[in-house]
Design a protein around this nucleic acid. Structure first.
Length: 566
RNA sequence: UGGGGAAUCGUCUAACGGCAGGACAACGGCCUCUGACGCCGUCAAUCAAGGUUCGAAUCCUUGUUCCCCAGCCA
């Protein structure tokens, strides 16, 4: 928390808010809202909006409401309503008792529509969807008035009442605002305000309504009813602002929130549209909304990300009106920075290679004490058993060093076992195919907690005691897509064609130190020299320990190797 | 000239007529019982052309490029 207070974010929206407060525009009040549609899980793009809205409210003594924009019962669902609340809470934000639904306002919305009819500013239109489209004109040509545009107030009122009463079928009639069919802004060409929807059960209002208000009508009024002062939304609604203002100017509400638009988040190697994320889930391309590879809040959480790291990310990327494409490296740095400070250290061997310490007594077991965090003593220590047989990682041994910089174990070479002894490789056991299957080593008994006499041993590798180790399955998550902008490639391919086939690799024969028998869901550990890992919250069971890799450690050695190979 | 927006290091972002700064990335070095972390350093930008001004990323003009809009979705 102290970290976050260091750099109080500033951006053009905060500047506007500050100016408005200084000018005493809303009597000093500041009210924002986060208005998700419950038609999917929240993703990291929503986190940007959440952090913006709740963050501004918190920093300027304001409040931020949570409001579900639930005007389209075809797409919305109670599962999402619940998941969204969980995610916002998990991110660390609180709306107190201010949980609202646009559907709370259906009655009032209806009455405001009646007002518009009475003022001659709305009409019931019998054109079907295709006809409305035709009448709307094109981007360059004006539209034409609907033949129903001139209906009398009485007729409109009567028709609207009958729409509400369920006399007309889906699509037979809509309510439209009477604005300007020749407007250069297409949103002002008599936009639809209400449509008919029979046979759906709304998760909040059940079957009470068969007419449902559209976003453009609902949103400004919901905002105004809640006394929102600053209505923050993404850039694609910029064209809708004149309509937002028109609605509030033509309806008897005195509150008139200020809509301000900012650009959406785009992240490399993933997709951020709800439609596409929904497809990935419904077509079984991922395991679900909380698949650790998904850019959803639930996915990131299951992956081992912390809420603080996501908040930090949202602050680092800033808020502007320019299109942007954020590199994965930013997100990765946020989570690494947080976890480096907070994650307890453990040892785990992902690709085991057995090592027998030939000069270590067969029945001897030592309990070695190891710090849970090398820089933070307050995190305490733990005991790690050491014995004659251990596992190290295959990649930490090479019979002949690939280059002079290699500082791990080599034939007849020495290496430090982290927190334990320096060992020397005396003998390499291979199978008939020439594959190394076991190492025989000797240890220097004087090197426990001390440097060896008269020589420098540079390399340090991790290990686990073979008889004590716990077997585990480790899932290595990588980027979901192999292209930085999977949904915007110019090769005619679909974003699904760019799914990274190696985005999920599962290692089944891993060994982790016995202390990990106590792991709990929700804690991310650093497996030393490997990365950050957490228990999978879904697949884990009593029989099987299953970890997800949150993110690797920065690996300058791997980078070096890659350069040598290429 | 259909309308609405946006252009600053590779990426994101700051500047509000007065030294183009920061973060991430990259690169080099130091440190190290994690090839991590940390520390030090290096590289690197105002879309273009004119104009106003003592002085322009910022103001003006003319261009260029990119994004959004023709749902009874939000």
């Amino acid at each position: 928390m102290t970290q976050e207070q260091k750099h109080k974010p500033t951006n053009f929206i905060r500047q506007i808010v500050e100016e408005d407060i200084k000018a005493n525009k809303n009597g000093g009040r500041l009210v924002t809202r986060f208005p998700p549609e419950p038609n999917g899980y929240l993703h990291i793009g929503h986190a940007k909006s959440i952090v913006l809205n709740f963050g501004i409210a918190a920093d300027y003594q304001g409040i931020c409401n949570l409001r579900f924009d639930d005007t389209n019962p075809h797409k919305e669902n109670i599962e999402y309503v619940e998941a969204i609340q969980d995610d916002v809470k998990w991110l660390g934000f609180d709306w107190d008792d201010r949980l609202y639904y646009a559907s709370n306002y259906f009655e009032q919305l209806h009455d405001f529509a009646v007002e518009l009819f009475k003022a001659g500013k709305a009409y019931v239109c019998d054109l079907n969807a295709d006809e409305i489209r035709t009448y709307r004109g094109t981007l360059k040509e004006p539209g034409r008035d609907s033949p129903y545009r001139t209906r009398s107030v009485e007729e409109n009122l009567d028709l609207f009442a009958r729409m509400k009463a369920g006399e007309f079928g889906d699509g037979m009639k809509v309510v439209r605002a009477k604005i300007d069919m020749a407007s250069a802004n297409i949103n002002l060409r008599d936009p639809t305000l209400y449509r008919i929807r029979h046979g759906v059960i709304h998760h909040q209002t059940g079957e009470a309504w068969c007419i449902y208000p559209m976003y453009d009508f609902t949103h400004p009024i919901s905002d105004a009813l809640e006394g929102i002062t600053h209505s923050l939304c993404t850039l694609e609604f910029e064209d809708h602002r004149p309509l937002y203002d028109w609605i509030l100017d033509n309806v008897s509400i005195s509150c008139h929130p200020r809509q301000i638009e900012f650009s959406r988040l785009n992240l490399q190697y993933t997709v951020m549209s709800k439609r596409k994320l929904t497809e990935l889930v419904s077509e079984g391309l991922v395991e679900g909304w909380d698949d650790p590879r998904m850019p959803t809040i639930a996915g990131l959480r299951r992956r081992g990300f912390t809420a603080a790291s996501i908040r930090e990310f949202c602050e680092r990327i800033g808020v502007t009106k320019s299109d942007n494409l954020i590199e994965m490296g930013v997100l990765e740095d946020c989570i690494r920075t947080d976890l480096n400070i907070h994650a307890p250290r453990r040892m785990a061997v992902l690709h085991p290679l057995k090592v027998v310490i030939t000069d270590y007594p067969e029945d001897k077991i030592e309990q070695l004490s190891m710090a849970n965090h090398p820089q933070d003593g307050s995190m305490g220590k733990r005991q790690i058993p050491f014995s004659r047989e251990i596992y190290i990682d295959r990649h930490d041994f090479e019979e002949v060093p690939p280059n002079k910089k290699f500082k791990r174990l080599i034939a007849n070479g020495e290496v430090r076992l982290r927190g334990a002894y320096v060992i020397r490789c005396d003998e390499i056991i291979k199978d008939e195919k020439g594959e190394v299957i076991e190492l025989h080593c000797s240890h220097d008994a004087a090197t426990l907690g001390a440097n060896p006499e008269g020589r420098k041993v540079k390399g340090v590798i991790h290990w686990v005691s073979a008889p004590h180790a716990l077997e585990a399955e480790i899932r290595l998550c990588d980027r979901l897509f192999s292209h930085p902008t999977p949904d915007a490639t110019k090769d005619g391919k679909d974003y699904k064609d760019h799914i990274n086939p190696d985005s999920q690799r599962t290692l089944t024969n891993c060994y982790v130190e016995p202390d990990l028998a106590e792991v709990r869901v929700g804690v991310t550990y650093q497996f030393e020299r490997e990365g950050y890992f957490c228990l999978d919250s879904v697949l884990n069971s009593h029989e099987r320990l299953i970890f997800n890799r949150t993110v690797t450690l920065r690996d300058t050695w791997a980078k070096l190797e890659q350069e040598h190979n290429s």
